Amino acid sequence: MPRRLRPVELDFVSSAPVRLEFTADLAAAPPAVYTALAEELESTPDWFAAVLSATPTDGGAGRTVRLRGGIRFQETIMAAEPGARYAYRIDETNAPGVTAMLEDWVLSPAGAGTRVRWTMAVDGPAACRLVMRLARPGVGKSFRDAMRGLDRKLTPARTPSPGTGR
């Protein structure tokens, strides 16, 4: 059964009791990464295995996300800065224990590609906080796998040049 979470603002990303932060470097440029994250929601399950579906709501001001395992989120977009940042607050979820949650994707140039920094900021009772901290390795693996999938989607396969022997 969905529950309403405590509404938080963008500063929650730095003040949350639990912050899971991960980074990855992608070959694609920041505008392409942003488009995949924020605008092409229907293709999210193609590169992020944990996601079953992601659909825009409220004319693009929100999203509904379904994860494998039955978890659902109703979200409000908090920051949409093309090529730079995409953040959303979870307003409603059936995930047990969580009382407040925000996810923040920050994109920055890294050579010809993009450095992606993803922060999941969470609050809840002590047991929820402990579970989230213990989940860090699994969440990190899910993020790394998703970024490899996104990089494959956004970076065309490179074919060897004739005569290079590669």
Rank of each mutant, 00 (worst) to 15 (best):
residue 61 A to S: 12
residue 87 A to F: 00
residue 65 V to A: 10
residue 53 S to W: 00
residue 46 D to P: 01
residue 19 R to P: 04
residue 121 A to V: 04
residue 144 R to Y: 02
residue 30 P to Q: 12
residue 154 L to W: 00
residue 114 T to E: 07
residue 135 A to Q: 07
residue 30 P to N: 13
residue 85 R to I: 01
residue 23 T to L: 01
residue 47 W to G: 05
residue 67 L to T: 06
residue 86 Y to C: 05
residue 7 P to H: 14
residue 37 L to E: 05
residue 142 S to I: 03
residue 41 L to E: 06
residue 30 P to E: 09
residue 62 G to A: 14
residue 57 T to I: 11
residue 122 V to C: 10
residue 24 A to N: 00
residue 157 A to G: 14
residue 76 T to K: 15
residue 60 G to V: 08
residue 147 M to R: 10
residue 130 L to C: 11
residue 105 W to L: 06
residue 33 V to F: 05
residue 39 E to F: 02
residue 32 A to S: 09
residue 73 F to T: 05
residue 53 S to T: 10
residue 163 G to Q: 05
residue 76 T to L: 09
residue 10 L to R: 08
residue 164 T to A: 15
residue 91 D to T: 04
residue 135 A to P: 03
residue 89 R to L: 09
residue 151 D to G: 13
residue 5 L to A: 04
residue 29 A to S: 12
residue 83 G to D: 12
residue 142 S to V: 10
residue 64 T to L: 13
residue 35 T to C: 07
residue 151 D to A: 11
residue 166 R to F: 05
residue 62 G to I: 06
residue 100 A to G: 13
residue 33 V to S: 12
residue 147 M to G: 08
residue 125 P to L: 15
residue 71 I to V: 15
residue 157 A to R: 14
residue 139 V to K: 06
residue 128 C to H: 04
residue 150 L to T: 07
residue 68 R to E: 14
residue 163 G to I: 04
residue 120 M to H: 03
residue 93 T to F: 05
residue 17 P to C: 04
residue 128 C to K: 08
residue 137 P to C: 07
residue 86 Y to A: 09
residue 17 P to W: 04
residue 40 E to N: 10
residue 130 L to Y: 04
residue 140 G to I: 02
residue 151 D to N: 15
residue 18 V to S: 14
residue 145 D to P: 02
residue 1 M to F: 00
residue 82 P to R: 12
residue 4 R to W: 01
residue 97 G to P: 02
residue 64 T to F: 12
residue 72 R to S: 13
residue 84 A to Q: 14
residue 55 T to F: 02
residue 150 L to Y: 01
residue 156 P to W: 05
residue 95 A to T: 12
residue 111 G to A: 08
residue 65 V to E: 07
residue 92 E to P: 02
residue 96 P to T: 11
residue 74 Q to P: 04
residue 71 I to A: 15
residue 131 V to L: 13
residue 128 C to L: 12
residue 113 G to C: 11
residue 37 L to G: 09
residue 16 A to K: 01
residue 151 D to C: 13
residue 84 A to H: 14
residue 152 R to C: 05
residue 86 Y to I: 05
residue 2 P to S: 11
residue 125 P to K: 10
residue 101 M to S: 15
residue 19 R to Q: 12
residue 101 M to A: 11
residue 137 P to L: 12
residue 56 P to Y: 03
residue 147 M to S: 02
residue 158 R to F: 03
residue 90 I to E: 05
